[in-house]
Amino acid sequence: MKKYSNSNFWGLLLAFPFIFFYVLFLLYPTIYTLLFSFTDSPLIGWGKWVGLENYIKLFNDKLFLKSLKNTFVFVFWTVVPNTLIGLMCAMMINRLKNPYIAAFLLACFFIPHILPVTVVTQVWSWMLSKQYGIIQEFLEFLGYAKIAFFKKKQFAMPAVAIVTIWWTVGFNILLFIAGLKSINPEIYEASDLDGANSWAKFRYITWPLIWPITALVLTLQLIFQLKIFDQMYLLTAGGPFNSTLVVLQLVYKQGFQMNRGGYASAIAMVLFLIIIVVSIMQYYVLRDKEKDK
């Protein structure tokens, strides 16, 4: 008994630094934001208590509904493609016999992930620049006119999605490789004996066995992409005519540019709730699928 309470004490002590910083930097600001969202506060300092007024205004705000839609469009362009590309790259790297080449390729895919977002967006805005972008030369070579990717409604969102996938796919590849390595090679040997072709091996061995990783990557991706802000702010700033205005960009606009801290907090709280609800829903959907197998 004594031993048990003792280990409890040590456990708490060891967890204390985390709990301390968690409360200080996450819980406290979140509660603060929640309270803020019921006021008409400016960006800094308290305002008058207005109850649910911000929330009521929010659901009549065309721009908010548009930003919500845009955020989900971005999720559509990134979450599944990023996961599938990650899986494909991981499988290709995994097939390589030479471990050095495999390690080199993995590093190549992973390096973008360690770059800060400012560098990534700068590199891509150079590459895609209408005036001197290297991609434009390629387009011209193929006989197409130059395209201002971040200024055209039909290209802006996919272009930011491509930049995002290029930037973050390395992490997914890493997770998938770990998953692939954990599959017992004897299962593949057995399937060889049964005469399974590559597709059958993927469909009936790799895919089901790697499913937990796929579900994890999908969930992480969903959460990351719903929080899209940096790349969008740096590459399109929400334009052209709000076609890439995402929820966090609206929070920034209302809070920092319009000095409406209360309203911006209300938008942030709604996004917070959406992320929680959507990720829980996704978790249940993916978990059921796993059970069926």
Partner: peptide, 14 residues
Amino acid sequence: DAFSNYIAPAVNGE
């Protein structure tokens, strides 16, 4: 902001 968001696309034919 509105000029970047709406007017610039108009100047550029959008």
